[in-house]
């Protein structure tokens, strides 16, 4: 089971890295998305994949039983999903705004920042 997950995560991360290396900024954002999803799976797997009971403390006892699942990885993943969602949403908005301002989705046309004060650009802007 672990091995199946390992291959699935590896494939997903591979796709993520491939997209991240693209010049197209939308692909870059999709790459980030895939990578963060794969990371969540990684945490899930490293929490241990075993058949267990739900982590509910039964009436009368104070601690979880031996067979109960570990709830912590799920809490971690939930936090990571929320954070990842917010950041990817921001990145998508940033891509849209960048496209409107710079007129291109290709990173080789995005050089407004590095042109400032560059010795290779004659008259630079002062943004």
């Amino acid at each position: 089971m672990n091995l199946v997950y390992a291959f699935a995560i590896a494939a997903q991360m591979g796709c993520g890295i491939y997209l991240l290396l693209s010049r197209h900024v939308v692909r870059v954002v999709l790459g980030i998305l895939l990578l963060s999803a794969a990371t969540n799976l990684l945490i899930f797997v490293s929490g241990g994949l075993i058949n267990t009971a739900p982590p509910v403390i039964s009436a009368g006892s104070e601690t979880l039983g031996d067979q109960a699942a570990n709830p912590l990885p799920q809490a971690l993943i939930l936090t990571a999903i929320v954070i990842g969602f917010a950041l990817v949403a921001f990145a998508a908005a940033l891509v849209l705004k960048t496209y409107r301002a710079l007129g291109s989705v290709f990173t080789d046309h995005h050089n407004a920042a590095e042109a400032m004060g560059s010795p290779f650009v004659e008259e630079s802007s002062n943004g």
Binding site: L102, A113, E114, S125
Partner: peptide, 16 residues
């Protein structure tokens, strides 16, 4: 500004 959006894009991707 154009430069800020360009800079923010690089900042965002690598820091993410």
């Amino acid at each position: 500004t154009r430069a800020q959006l360009d800079g923010a894009m690089k900042y965002a991707v690598l820091n993410l």
